[in-house]
Design a protein around this nucleic acid. Structure first.
Lengths: 146, 146
DNA sequence: TTCACTGCAAATCATTTGCAAGGCC
DNA sequence: GGCCTTGCAAATGATTTGCAGTGAA
């Protein structure tokens, strides 16, 4: 599996290292759209020397090389997604969870409005209440994550 | 005009004050998707006692009351838009400019995937190179704003 | 040896918070 | 008087930067 991840990086022009493989591996296995800090916390046990700087650098590198998506869906931190296929995201304002949404039509904007433009990224975010939080009603301590 | 803005705020349940009117006025007249700091810089001349705290608080209030949109299109700062009608945004990675895009179809995601969800916000961002930067090529000092 | 990768510590900087003062009803 | 708004200063916290050490080709 680690070897698969290693090749995954090489294919995307990223020199594999212990840290990079571990971070990519984490992204591919955990589809929770983690922040840099969450990844750091999860990996620093198995890689005690890991530094947050490396996690930040690596995630930025991954995003540049198209090996991961950086999501600006959360005002607080940048979230990362190892799934680079075309899809939208939903963020629950109550529990904070980010859920993937399949996309039927990507081009919402009439191409005539984009003449002369080069589009390199399209992102669509939905926010609101997820099924679970919606039905729990406002019973829970609504931490108003916003 | 100021009086119009005042009523605009009242209609949205926002108590008007000198500062709030000035900020809303700025948003309605400047469709540049400014950051809190840009608004502060623009207004602190005419309102010397204005504090950044007030600008931040006010913009957050506007966003809550639906009098403005807060855009997370820029990793660096939150941008605000006084135009609350449905539209998408394009951000040029070279010059950093944010451009409004008319939207033809809002629902890219099949509603069946959103059953049980409450959607309160939909945002769509495009990034790339704007017409101008595209044709200038990489001649300019590409500050790689990203 | 070279050069890229790593990681610590310090810096940066947008945003928030605590709190006292002022203003409006 | 009481409450909401303001604004200063300090705090917070995510991300970046400087720089020295380390390791692989």
């Amino acid at each position: 599996m680690t070897n698969t991840t290693k090749n995954y990086l090489i294919e995307r022009g990223i020199k594999p290292s212990l840290q990079r493989i571990a971070i990519m591996d984490y992204l591919l296995k955990n589809r929770t759209h983690p922040s840099a800090d969450e990844i750091y916390q999860a990996l620093c046990e198995s890689i005690p020397t890991l530094s947050k700087t490396t996690v930040y650098n690596t995630l930025k590198l991954f995003a540049q090389q198209g090996a991961a998506l950086s999501l600006e869906i959360d005002e607080k931190n940048i979230r990362y997604d190892g799934d680079t296929s075309i899809h939208a995201h939903f963020r629950c304002k109550s529990c904070g969870e980010i859920i993937d949404l399949p996309v039927d039509q990507v081009n919402m904007v009439d191409p005539k409005h984009l003449e002369g433009f080069v589009i390199t990224e399209i992102s669509a975010f939905y926010k609101g209440l997820c099924d679970k939080c919606n039905h729990e009603g406002s019973l829970m301590q609504n931490k108003s994550i916003n």
